[in-house]
Design a protein around this nucleic acid. Structure first.
Length: 122
DNA sequence: GGGCTGACCTACT
DNA sequence: CAGTAGGCCAGCC
């Protein structure tokens, strides 16, 4: 039977959200990840767009550090005149990050940068 | 079922 | 450095 499972919600569809939230949750304060990196760490390479979707649908209850996710250009992915943009910038600055020419230095605060520092040293 | 949208990315010019 | 083009794919009409 094709059976209409009443309470079968095919978990897979909601699982990937959880994976993304989990990864974002693990980003240490004072550091950032790009959407692409979060996607990769969630086991979904090239699913950067899904990450932004997960952000939008993330329950506030989770108290997710959404502000630690920025785009690959080191910039905040909101229009500069939006309150969301200002809010995110404030949160990041509160964690010690510095904006240079409206951008964040990914070599200093990003994932790749952190790895390079471990391999090459400061 | 088809088409548009989007807190994106990479590569190229 | 800026701008363009193609790719990606889950949601939502």
């Amino acid at each position: 039977m094709t059976s209409k499972g009443p309470e079968k919600k095919s978990p897979d569809q909601q699982t990937w959200y959880r994976k993304v939230w989990k990864v974002v949750c693990e980003i240490p304060a004072g550091h950032v990840l790009t959407y692409g990196e979060v996607a990769r760490l969630s086991g979904m390479p090239r699913a950067a767009r899904r990450v932004s979707q997960a952000m939008r649908r993330a329950p506030r209850k989770l108290d997710l550090p959404w502000h630690r996710v920025i785009n690959a250009q080191g910039k905040i992915s909101f229009p500069e005149d939006s309150s969301d943009w200002r809010s995110q910038k404030e949160r990041l600055e509160a964690e010690g990050l510095v904006f240079l020419h409206g951008k964040i230095d990914l070599d200093r605060y990003g994932y790749r940068g952190a790895v390079d520092r471990l391999l090459w040293g400061e």
